[in-house]
Design a protein around this nucleic acid. Structure first.
Lengths: 114, 114
DNA sequence: CTTGAATATGCAAATATGCTTATTTTAATA
DNA sequence: TATTAAAATAAGCATATTTGCATATTCAAG
C-alpha cells in the first residue's frame, strides 16, 4: 500500500446516509478481519473456541509445522484475539473474547453449499 | 502462497475436539473475510446495508477515486456479497445477503474503546 | 550445568494487495 | 451517427503476506 493507512478521505462528503455506527473505526475493524482472514487462523480460532490448547496440540490438530503455528498465533495475539499462559513447558492459548469466534462462525456458515 | 491452496493438512490428526462445523470450508470463509478486510470495503458494506447505491454516489460518500471504488466493488461482487443492476446510465449495487453486514457490524463493535 | 523437547525468530522467494493513471466499454442523447 | 457520462478494465508499481527452512531461546529434568 502506498498511502498512509487511514480510510482514504479525499473530498468532502455529503449527507451521510445512516447505519454507520457513530464513531466506527473501520481501520481497526479491517485489521481484526485481516487477522482472521486465513484458513489456518480461522481453524485455530475455531479450535480454541472449545477451550484452551497448547502449541504442540495445535500443531498436531492443524497438521501445520510448529514455526508456522507459532507465527499465526503471534499474529492473533497481536490482534488481541488470543492470550497465552505458560504451563510447565507448554504454552497454552485461549480466546480473549468471543467476538472472534462469532465472526468465524458467521463466516463459516455456508448459506448455500457451493 | 506457494503450496496449492487448501488448508494445509500435512499429517494425520487425532481426535478432533469438536465445535468445528461439520464440513466447514475454511478456505471459502477466509476468502469471505479477506473480501471484507479493508476499511473502504467495510464502509461500502455498511453504506449498502442501508439500501442500494450507485457507483457515483459511493465515490462521493467514500471520497475515493472511481477506479478504486469499482475495484473494491468487483472484489465484493466476486465474493458474492453484493450484486449490481444497471439503472439508466448508473449501475446500482446492493447486498445479496445479510451475512456480510452482520460480520461487519460485529467487527466494528469496539468492546472497549481503545 | 547438560540434555532434549517446546516455542519463538529470522530470512528469502513467491504471491497477493491496493493505488494511480490511462484506456475501453456501455448506454443514453443530441 | 457522434458525443458524453458512468463504470469497468488494464498496466505499472510499491508494499505486505505467506511459506518453508534454519536457527535461536526457553524450560524442566536429570
Amino acid at each position: 500500500m502506498r498511502g498512509e493507512k487511514g480510510s482514504t478521505v479525499r473530498g468532502d462528503e455529503h449527507a451521510i446516509p445512516e447505519g454507520i455506527p457513530a464513531g466506527a473505526d473501520f481501520d481497526s475493524a479491517s485489521e481484526l478481519l485481516r487477522a482472521l482472514a486465513h484458513p489456518v487462523r480461522l481453524r485455530i480460532i475455531d479450535l480454541l473456541s472449545t477451550g484452551e490448547l497448547c502449541v504442540k496440540r495445535l500443531e498436531e490438530l492443524l497438521g501445520v509445522s510448529q514455526p508456522s503455528v507459532s507465527q499465526h498465533l503471534r499474529r492473533l495475539k497481536y490482534g488481541g484475539l488470543i492470550e497465552s499462559e505458560r504451563r510447565g513447558h507448554l504454552v497454552c492459548y485461549r480466546l480473549t473474547e468471543d467476538r472472534a469466534a462469532e465472526i468465524a462462525r458467521l463466516a463459516l456458515v455456508r448459506p448455500d453449499a457451493k
